[in-house]
């Protein structure tokens, strides 16, 4: 191999190499993007749940408050 005069044509290997590099990087970026999107959705749902729970608590408090006064 070291004494060959003609340079072997290894272009297909080169193309495969670059293609795989871009593929792996793209797949990783896509996974980052998807995980990020899912987390944002989770955060949105959880904040809504939290708000709903807080509103519920407020209602309960309001209901409870007059009763307490009445007992007194």
């Amino acid at each position: 191999m070291f004494f060959q005069e003609v340079t072997p044509d290894t272009s297909s290997y080169m193309i495969a190499g670059f293609a795989i590099t871009f593929l792996v990087l793209a797949a990783y970026v896509a996974s980052l993007y998807l995980r990020d999107r899912n987390l944002k959705q989770d955060i949105d749902t959880l904040t809504e749940l939290q708000k709903a729970a807080e509103a519920e608590n407020l209602k309960m408090d309001k209901k409870r408050a007059p009763k307490k006064n009445a007992e007194k």
Partner: peptide
């Protein structure tokens, strides 16, 4: 970087084009 390694860097004589993946 892809442009430089594929089109600008000279071809390595013994191994041919596949040597270009070496940069990455």
């Amino acid at each position: 970087a892809t442009y430089l390694s594929i089109f600008v860097a000279p071809m390595e004589r013994v191994m041919g084009n596949v040597q270009r993946v070496f940069y990455f």
